[in-house]
Simulated scan of single mutants.
Amino acid sequence: MALLPWNATAVNQDALTARLFVQNKNTNAVERMLVQTLEAIKEGRLQQALDYVNQLLTISPNFALAHLIHGDLLSAKTRILHGFGDVNAADVTRIQDFKDEAETRIRNYFDRNRGLTQPNLLVELSEKQNHVLFVDTARSRLYVYEKSQRDTLKYVADYYVTIGKNGTGKKDQGDKRTPIGVYFAARKLNRPLPDLYGDAAYPLNYPNEIDSYERKTGSGIWIHGTPRDTYSRPPRASDGCVVLSNPDVQALQNILQTGGTPVVIGVNFQWVGADALKQQAQTKAELSNALESWRRDWVSQNTDAYLSHYTRDFFYSEGDLAKWSSYKRQIQAAKPKVSINLADISMFTYPNAKQNMVVVDFEQEYISPALRNVMKKRQYWVQENGQWKILYEGSA
């Protein structure tokens, strides 16, 4: 009975020598069984591998990668195979897609078993937010974290995802790239959708304010599922959306159905422990102080001090800093007595940005003799010469 040549072609040797069966409640059964199958193949236990993959196909009958492995195992009973997917070697591109998916899933399986901390990003969830999703496009992985005690984040689960055919850094309509940034997922689309989108679709707010300012085009970037006859797609196969298997989309339903779930999409997050996150706590304190100083200077009607919180590159929906300054000086010339209260504050580091940037959302209550207004506001803060300044401000 021939040994399938997975050792050299489909999986990383170092990964398969790692400790295999580290169990925890979040381990994905499909990936665990896939790794069990490949480990059995690596060790020449082909009948046991066949038993594993049969079990895998019982719970995921539309898992194409598992079908390919099953075909290889059956063929190995009668002939020597010369490569992964040798049963259908003519479709070279498709076979490479399967290899990429296998390698990605296995790598992340062992990464998970090492114990996940969290990305080295400032993340402060508001009182109304319980979860944040991190999409690491380099790993083809979506990580779920929930708010824990003392406003820390606790790892919940992680899932394999497909991203854009042409990778990341979306700029133009139809470029088949996944955007990088901080986004917020809307509630599930209730209108009928083509089978391509699977069991559910949750739109992201691409283009966000920074995307629009940078003149990025396109729309319709969603988190969604797969067609009914497809368990999963290759790591790079979407038109820019973040695609999960239908069971995984269903697993996220309770989190996403609330609407407004933050989704941070980046490349090669740095995963750090609690000690390294102390720096983020310091950044949060500095930014919180800057936000409070901005609020106080607004209340005091000290226009020069108030405007000093804005960067020279500041923009908003109506124009630039010059127009904003003129507007504010006109309003504050009469020195009206105002009360401004901020609540429900959230903060998210903008990943892979050219400069240190944080998205800050809050509920703003503005009270003057003539007006009382409560609105959801969004600001983008950047570090400029060691100080935090506002790059953008508008409604959220």
Rank of each mutant, 00 (worst) to 15 (best):
L16A: 05
R19A: 11
T27G: 07
A29L: 14
A29P: 12
A29I: 15
V30P: 04
L38R: 00
E43I: 09
G44C: 00
N54I: 11
Q55H: 14
Q55R: 14
L57N: 01
H67A: 02
D72L: 06
A76C: 03
K77F: 09
H82F: 14
N88G: 00
A90P: 03
K99W: 00
A102Y: 03
T104G: 04
Q118M: 06
Q118R: 15
L122S: 05
N130Y: 10
V132W: 03
L133S: 01
R139G: 04
K147Q: 00
T152R: 12
D158T: 01
V161P: 01
G167K: 03
T168N: 09
G169Y: 09
G174Q: 07
D175G: 09
K176S: 14
G181W: 00
A186Y: 14
A186D: 15
L189T: 10
N190M: 12
N190Q: 13
R191Y: 15
P194L: 06
A201Q: 08
P203F: 06
P203Q: 04
E214Y: 10
I223H: 02
H224V: 01
H224Q: 06
S232F: 03
P234M: 03
P234Q: 07
P235Y: 04
Q257G: 04
P262T: 08
N268C: 02
A274I: 09
D275N: 11
L277D: 00
E286S: 10
E292S: 09
S293F: 10
S293I: 14
W294T: 03
R295P: 05
R296K: 09
D297V: 06
D304F: 05
Y310R: 08
Y310I: 05
Y310V: 02
Y310T: 01
R312L: 14
R312K: 15
Y316C: 05
G319N: 07
G319E: 07
S326W: 09
K328S: 00
Q332H: 13
K335P: 07
A343K: 10
A353I: 11
M357H: 07
F362H: 06
I367T: 09
N373R: 11
M375F: 12
Q379E: 13
Q383I: 11
N385G: 08
K389Q: 06
S395K: 14
S395Q: 15
